[in-house]
Design a protein around this nucleic acid. Structure first.
Lengths: 206, 206
DNA sequence: CGAATATGTGAGGAATTAATCACATTTTGC
DNA sequence: GCAAAATGTGATTAATTCCTCACATATTCG
């Protein structure tokens, strides 16, 4: 099944249409999930006719794929920016920055982020999701490299970064599930911090 | 929407029918996902007429709910059994046992496990899923309690167990995504082991 | 301007699917 | 053995949904 856009919007008017469609899809996706998603409802919510929708997206899956692409990029950008905004002097501060960046990067509706992860495989966008994860893992690797001396020497930084990225993503999902964004999972976050720092600084084991 | 079974099968023949329906649903769910699931196809795969299906399940969601209930219990049982089969003398061995139990408990098709997690919320079965997670976290807590002296004294064991359960589940999903069950994620598993042990044994931090 | 191109519209066709129900078959309990 | 209960059947229906297409409107550019 082809999920590529049918054609690019050239005029500003068309770009607005496409944008509205993607936003509307994201909203409906988070509210009711993929299987409840109807093209007619997307068009209605976007304030656009079904004909316009099908002019740019060949089918329902393409809508979801567009959402995954759009918000995936947005998510990674937000993470990178949030991480770059700080200049952590110690490893502990660096880990705090990572946790903070993860929480900040998440859309206010974590449901959207979850929906994307669930959707990507069904819509031929695993690759894209992996790219996002890899990009973030890369940022984490760079951050770890900066504090190489504080980290157990036998640890492979890329491996460690991959694991940390996975844990951050999971824990933040769980945390945001229970609490509003602002005070997201006080305890959970503290535990997470300890988990990561202990891992990075633990002496090598047989 | 009511997702409760319509009536209980009394005769053995009827139990076989229901069983076949649940199994068929699980297979189709892992292969094609919920939105592609059709009641007709479930009935066909189960070797049963649609009428029979609707005699026990009021709708499509009820089918998925039954699968979640069935395999959730099965998963927790498998974990408990696998963990109980070993008698870990040290904390490290205990952690190994947990990791092993998690991998063993997973159905051979991790896709089913994932599908269940994705489905539960859409089908009114979050509660059930949480129960499974809690039961496993409880087992982990018991295991940790046995090795209290090897663990940082300021750690709350229940909190730690919850975090460990979350990490185990996530990492095993990721690991099983890439490798067959037998040699599941060699490196990933080793990293995970180190992560958990470091966390548990790290001295308390300001 | 005015022709060519881009974009927008929404009724309706074609296909799919959830769910029912009237009836057939099997099992149970006496 | 037989009535009553339990179970099984599948054609059919009503509703939904994806997507097209013929046509209207808007924008661009020489």
């Amino acid at each position: 099944m082809d999920v590529n856009p049918r054609k690019f919007p050239r005029q500003a008017r068309a770009r607005a249409t496409v944008e509205a469609i993607v936003v509307a899809t994201a909203q409906l996706l988070t509210d009711h999930g993929f299987e409840a998603l109807t093209t007619a409802e997307v068009a209605e919510r976007a304030g656009v006719s079904i004909g316009s929708l099908y002019q740019y997206f060949p089918n329902k899956q393409a809508l979801a794929a567009a959402v995954v692409d759009h918000y995936g990029e947005q998510f990674a950008d937000a993470f990178v920016e949030a991480l770059g905004a700080r200049a952590p002097a110690t490893l502990a501060e660096s880990v705090d920055a990572m946790i903070h960046a993860t929480l900040v990067a998440h859309p206010h509706e974590p449901a959207l982020h979850r929906a994307m992860i669930e959707l990507a495989p069904r819509v031929g966008r695993v690759e894209r999701t992996r790219e996002v994860a890899n990009r973030i893992a890369g940022e984490i690797t760079a951050e770890l490299t900066r504090h190489r001396r504080e980290i157990a020497p036998d640890l492979d930084l890329a491996d460690a970064a991959a694991l940390i990225q996975l844990v951050l993503e999971t824990v933040s999902h769980r945390a945001l599930q229970h609490h509003p964004v602002s005070l997201a999972g006080e305890g959970m976050v503290r535990q997470c911090r300890r988990l990561i720092i202990a891992y990075l600084t633990s002496p090598s084991m047989g």
